[in-house]
């Protein structure tokens, strides 16, 4: 479970986030939606502790995120960014297994987990021995997801995971991610500017504007009763494309 309590963040005197208070239950899949600059990525980075909030607290699985706890907490959180964020000097497989090797997993356990994840994400062994520069955008994102899932985390955070892909690959990966999230049963927080993607991959969407939560609910319900004209416009534009 993730609790976000009165979180605020400002840059150079300008508030970009908050105050935001949210609770995301275990196993729930939510999408943070909004136009660029609405604070959705900032909120995700606060959750994983890459940014420290000016005020408020974040709690993941009962542990407050802080300087002393973040290292251990992050091992329970998988984080996927646009274009995979793969390390160029490591092969696909070594990107996936880096953290497990640091933790001293034995080779057998690592190999078994890689095989399992490969089957889950549909990435063949021949792609895993390549360097990131030799992979297609879709393959890179699959490797990124495998890396995030390697330690079998309780929570999966994804920041525009399909943002850098062409339309066809994007549609195919959306379908695969929907199935994957379903089968994993993990808590998922997905950041996207695309309301259709949110509707497809998440149980619930949270609309943000200027760093604050405007509306929370199922996309269908929001379409029926938008909180304000901003949400209405976001929904009609987003669903139209």
């Amino acid at each position: 479970m993730i609790r976000i309590d009165q979180v605020e963040k400002a840059y150079a005197g300008r508030r970009v986030l908050g105050p935001v208070t949210l609770e995301i239950a275990s196993g729930q899949r939510v999408a943070l939606v909004g136009p660029s600059g609405c604070g959705k990525s900032t909120l995700l980075r606060v959750v994983i502790g890459l940014l420290a909030p000016d005020r408020g607290t974040v709690t993941v699985s009962g542990t407050p995120m802080g300087a002393g706890t973040k290292r251990a907490l992050r091992r329970k959180i998988g984080y996927v960014i646009q274009d995979g964020g793969l390390f160029p000097h490591l092969t696909g497989e070594h990107n996936v297994t880096l953290m497990a090797r640091e933790l001293g997993w034995d080779a057998e356990r690592i190999a078994a987990r890689v095989k399992e994840l490969g089957a889950m994400t549909g990435l063949g062994a021949e792609a895993l021995v390549r360097w990131p520069a030799q992979l297609s955008g879709g393959q890179r994102q699959r490797v990124g997801i495998m890396r995030a899932l390697m330690l079998d985390p309780e929570v999966l955070l994804l920041d525009e995971p399909l943002g850098a892909l062409d339309a066809i690959t994007r549609a195919r990966l959306q379908a695969e991610l929907a199935t994957l999230f379903e089968s994993l049963g993990k808590t998922v927080v997905l950041v996207t500017h695309d309301i259709a993607e949110a509707a497809r991959l998440a149980d619930e969407s949270i609309v943000l504007r200027d760093g604050e939560v405007v509306q929370r609910g199922r996309v269908e319900d929001m379409a029926r009763a938008p909180a304000d004209p901003f949400v209405a416009e976001l929904l009609t534009r987003g669903m139209g494309t």
Binding site: R45, I48, L50, R71, A72, L73, R74, R75, I77, Y79, I81, Q82, D83, G85, L86, F87, P88, H89, L98, M99, E102, R147, L151
Partner: peptide
């Protein structure tokens, strides 16, 4: 920055981030 953050978000210790990610990429 996306790569240094990715290394940090993995939960690597600062030393491991330096030795396994930063220095090899800067090599």
């Amino acid at each position: 920055a996306s790569l240094t953050e990715a290394a940090d978000a993995l939960g690597l210790t600062p030393r491991a981030q330096l030795m396994r990610v930063h220095l090899p990429i800067a090599s």
